[in-house]
Computed example of a mutant assay.
Amino acid sequence: MIRYPSFKYGATIGVTAPSSGVPEMLHSLIDAAKLRLEQQGFFVEIGDTTWTQEKVRSASAQKRAKEFNQMMQDDSIQLIFPPWGGELLIEMLEYIEFENLQEKWVLGYSDVSLLMLAITLKTGMASAIGTNLIDIRGKTSDETTAMWKEVLFTKAGEEIVQRSSSKYQLKWQHDNPTEHVFHLTEETKWKTVSGKSEKISGRVLGGCIDVIRHLIGTPYGDVKGFCESHFSNEPIIWVLENCEMTTTDLRRSLVQMKLAGWFNHCTGLVFGRSPANTPVNGYTVEDVYQELAEELRIPVIYDIDFGHVPPQITFVNGAFAEIEVRDGNGIVVQRFL
């Protein structure tokens, strides 16, 4: 069984930086995000690692893990909300006290998705891949991103419905802020390899491929054991995104995941829009998706609202989902079973 944490208005949110912290010149972003959450009725507790950054880390692996462990064991905190991702979260995994983690949500994406997948695989506790703290600092929020609260408010036994965005952001414009942070200018269109409508169902697992692939072969990436003990080998939907890889690196990573058995019982692959996917000698990301669909004989859906090209639907590791694409539009139903 999957364990789903509880969350409600008035809860305390813990902010810690298990990967990159926020340099002093950008501390105002944390202040703004804290203010928005407090205006919505939440309390916010900010850990020391949030405010520091040296080279590519907020602090040493041991210090990051200690602060994370403390927040996860604090009865008053219901959500851990890192400021953003980074590069070297994997360093702190060996110092996390998985056996002592209380039931609470961890929300984020990018490098943080490695932590969340490890938590779900190791403990059977659901975790949420969605927006990060920095991106909810605006006076308003687009409808897609704003659903993070409704998803986390969902109780065990209930379901939550999310729909594809109407527009997405083509590129970041940090020097041109908007009231809701993002610049949503391009028409959203979810796509399928088949070119037809697709509907898939199964348990959700996923994250940023760049980092979660490094769990393979470690004690934190036992997908087979997890599926046997928590899902009874139910169908799996992998929801994935590429941050920085070329198409050949992406292909290598996906083949490695396949060879490691991660795609056993997989009923469909879903890929977010990507700022990367650079073609190599004419080898495109569409080629990668086509090959996967043929090899695994499953539907492949892509360019969805997920990952480093906002806005983002909030997906829950462990939830049972139905994902449907029709005429470029998508609907995601997640049941907390």
Rank of each mutant, 00 (worst) to 15 (best):
A61H: 07
T178A: 05
Q312N: 15
L250A: 09
Y220W: 11
W84V: 00
D111L: 08
K149S: 06
E286D: 11
W172Y: 10
T314V: 11
V300F: 02
G272M: 01
L254M: 14
H308L: 15
I298T: 03
E187P: 00
L93S: 01
A65E: 04
L205R: 01
T278L: 13
T123W: 00
L88T: 10
D287H: 08
W84K: 08
K122I: 05
D74A: 09
L152D: 01
A61L: 00
G221Q: 08
S141F: 08
L107N: 10
C243Y: 10
R137Q: 02
D31N: 13
N277V: 04
E94S: 13
A11D: 05
Q53T: 07
F226M: 08
K189F: 07
L215T: 01
E228Q: 13
M25I: 14
E294A: 15
E286F: 00
D75Q: 12
L114V: 08
V56P: 06
K171T: 09
E322K: 10
F263D: 07
T178W: 00
I216Q: 00
Q169S: 03
E241H: 13
A33N: 02
V22A: 05
F271A: 11
W262I: 07
R335D: 12
Y95D: 13
D74P: 02
R213C: 11
K104D: 04
S127A: 14
V309I: 15
E91L: 01
V223S: 06
E198Q: 12
F306K: 06
Y9G: 11
V56T: 14
S113N: 04
K8P: 05
F81Y: 09
F336S: 05
K34S: 09
F42T: 00
F43A: 14
K155C: 00
V106Q: 09
L250Y: 02
E234R: 03
K55R: 13
L37F: 05
P83D: 02
G14I: 04
S197T: 15
L259G: 08
A33K: 05
L184F: 02
L337W: 13
V280Y: 09
C266T: 14
E159Q: 13
G41C: 13
A128H: 10
F306T: 11
G86K: 06
L240K: 09
V22Y: 01
F263V: 02
K171P: 04
I216A: 03
K122R: 10
E159M: 06
Y168I: 01
I134V: 12
Q62G: 10
I304C: 08
H308F: 15
E94M: 13
K199S: 15
H265D: 14
L152E: 07
E294N: 14
S28D: 15
R213A: 04
N233F: 13
K55W: 12
L152R: 00
R36M: 09
R64E: 06
F231Q: 00
I2D: 04
T218E: 03
G124K: 08
P275F: 03
P311K: 07
R252S: 15
Y283V: 06
N132L: 08
I298E: 07
T284R: 06
P275W: 03
I136V: 07
Y283N: 01
Y289P: 03
Y220D: 01
S19T: 02
T144Q: 01
E228C: 03
R297Y: 11
S113Q: 06
H174K: 13
V204T: 05
L37Y: 00
E91N: 14
G282W: 01
L184D: 00
T120F: 04
M72D: 09
T267F: 07
D305G: 08
